[in-house]
Design a protein around this nucleic acid. Structure first.
Lengths: 134, 134
DNA sequence: ATTAGAATTAGAATGATTCTAATATCTCAT
DNA sequence: ATGAGATATTAGAATCATTCTAATTCTAAT
């Protein structure tokens, strides 16, 4: 299977890990993925989950997200998007940019700089938590 | 000393850690700060450096930056800026936004969401490394 | 069927950070 | 100035996420 990057042999475990992510919208961590994958692939190990996540990431099938220190999170949403992170409940929500958004032009990067990727994380309080805090 | 957040008592170690950061533009990690602080404060311990970094961060005097997994980095540049991270040499460069830039309006965040902070990391290759790769 | 190259595994090792419990130091009311 | 209580600092242990290692199993092409 090749989409954006190198090929990956789609072994049963890699497929399982990919499907867990494809059916999750909550940006699970490696251990979250492990717990969910075990339901249908009881023998899978955490080491294999890490290994699968790494291969799927470098093949461009999933993305690794760093929102805060601690565990990395993963997502299978390949559309350009940013992450909203609720600092109260920890929830992560994908937000999609307006059609005419061209982020690179807003910053004065040194001449010669090549951009390959942009990580945008917006931190704050989600609607539900904002209500509670009142 | 109070600037943006809670007060911090500015003890000699905290001042030293702050000054190390204020005189660095390379976004040092905790151990980098530890090494530099030892020059003038030989007795300081890594635990104290972590402690100082945490207090200074929550007082709003410095910022913690997460560009990749592994060590956190810290910076004392409180102006609004984004980080360019060279994936080849690891260098981090601050880039400042155009005056009229209002990032929040570009994303459709759910109604009721409150934004407190935005982390923007641009990954790629810096000019120097791009030259070498040719 | 045979075999080289991947994939998978359990468990050990690592690296960054956080915790703990014991001093040391500071601040403030006396 | 003095002593009590609060805060800061320390070394080292503990934790957590991840990566590594070495052994085993699977796969796909001869």
């Amino acid at each position: 299977m090749a989409l954006l990057g190198a090929d990956v042999r789609l072994t049963p475990h890699r497929r399982e890990v990919f499907e867990v992510l494809a059916s999750s919208t909550d940006h699970p961590t490696a251990t979250d993925v492990f717990d969910r994958a075990k339901v249908r692939s009881p023998g899978i190990s955490l080491a294999t989950v890490y290994n699968c996540l790494e291969h799927l990431t470098s093949a461009g099938l999933i993305k690794q997200v760093h929102l805060e220190r601690g565990q990395s999170r993963y997502c299978a949403n390949l559309h350009e998007h940013v992450h909203f992170h609720c600092e109260t409940c920890g929830k992560v929500i994908d937000a999609h940019p307006a059609a005419d958004f061209d982020p690179a032009k807003f910053w004065n990067l040194p001449k010669g700089t090549k951009v390959t990727r942009m990580d945008i994380a917006i931190h704050g309080t989600c609607d539900a938590c904002a209500q509670k805090d009142l």
